[in-house]
Simulated scan of single mutants.
Amino acid sequence: MKFIAIASAFLASIVLTSAYPIQKASVINCRSSPSTSGKVVKTYKLNQDIKISCQATGIDVKGNTIWDRTMDGCYVSDYYVKTGKNGFVAKKCSGGDSKPNPKPTGTYCKGINARATKLIKSFESFVPQPSPDPSGFQTVGYGHKCQQEGCKEVKYKFPLTQATASALMSQDVAVHTACLAKLLKSNVKLNDNQWGALTSWVFNIGCGNLASSELTGRLNKGENPNKVIDSVFPNWRSSKGKILPGLKRRRDEEMRLAKVPSKKQAFPSCK
C-alpha cells in the first residue's frame, strides 16, 4: 500500500505540471542559470511547450525578472513563456537563484544626483498601489516592477507614500547602477550627469537589454560617452515598431542631461 501511495503521488505531480508555449521569438536559449550570461544548455522553438519544475528570480529581461526552470534542468526567461500571468505560477526553486542586483567588483556610485532622480520620477510617475503599467506588468511607486504577486517583496506598507516610494526607488536605482558597473570596464570615465542619464535609461529598459546593447561594448572600447549615448538612445524610443511620444521625450531628456558639464566623477568611483 505504501508503494502504491508513493507511486500515485509521483504520477499526480506529473499530471499537475502544466505545459506552457514559448512565445515572442523563433528560438529561445535555455541556460544553466537564471541569467543572460548563463551557459546555453539547449534551445526551444516558437510555440514549443515546456514544463516548468520551479521558478527563480534572475536577471531582468524586458521588465521580467522571473526565470522558469524547465524539466530539462535549465532556465528560460519567463518573458518568453506564455504562462498567462505576470508573476509566479510554480514553486520557487530551492537555491541557485541569480540575484537581479549583481555586485560589481571595485567601487562605484550606487546612487544618482538630484537631476537624474527628478528625471526618472517625472517619467515613471507616483503609483501608491500595485497596478498594471501600459505593458501589463504590475508596478508600484516610481516604476518598481513587481517580482511577486501583489509586490509582496516590497517591505513598505501599501498604499505607499511619496517618501516610501522614493526609498523604494533608491533601492531599485542601486540595482541598475550595479548592473551598469558590472558591465562597464574601469577605463570608462563618467561624470555624475552621464551616470544619471545611463541609469535612467537602464531603469527603463532593464539590465538584460543593457547587456545585449551595443552601448557597453562601445563605451568599453573608449568611445566618447556622449557620442555613444546620442547614437544608441534614439533606438530605444519605440514599441512594436512605433515611436512612442513618452519614450521619445525621455530619451531626449536623458541625452540632454548627459551633456550637462560636471566635474564630479561618478564612475568608476564616486569622488
Rank of each mutant, 00 (worst) to 15 (best):
Q148R: 15
A197S: 08
T177S: 06
K155E: 14
C179E: 11
A167P: 08
H176Q: 14
S186T: 07
Y156I: 06
C146S: 06
K145W: 11
K182I: 04
G141C: 11
C146I: 03
G217C: 02
S212A: 15
K145I: 15
Q162P: 06
Y142S: 05
C146A: 08
G150T: 02
L190F: 02
P159E: 02
E153S: 08
S170W: 09
Q138P: 10
K145R: 15
S200H: 08
T199F: 01
E149T: 11
L184V: 00
G206Q: 07
A178L: 13
N193I: 04
Q148K: 13
E149G: 15
D172G: 13
G143Q: 03
Q162N: 12
C207F: 07
A178S: 11
W195T: 07
G217M: 00
M169Q: 09
V154K: 09
D172Q: 13
G150P: 02
G196Y: 08
A178I: 08
V202F: 07
L190K: 06
H176F: 09
K155A: 14
G150C: 08
N204R: 06
E214V: 09
K155G: 14
V175A: 15
K145V: 15
F158H: 09
G196A: 12
T177Y: 04
M169I: 08
K189C: 09
K145N: 15
E149Y: 14
A181V: 03
K152H: 12
L160E: 01
W195G: 04
G141P: 03
Q162L: 11
V173A: 11
K182P: 05
G208F: 00
Q147N: 12
E153I: 06
D192C: 15
G206S: 09
F203Y: 12
Q138E: 10
L198N: 01
F158Q: 06
C146Q: 09
W195C: 05
A174G: 13
R218Q: 00
G217V: 00
C179G: 13
L198Y: 00
Q147G: 15
A163V: 09
L160Y: 01
N220F: 00
F158I: 06
F203R: 11
N187H: 04
C151F: 01
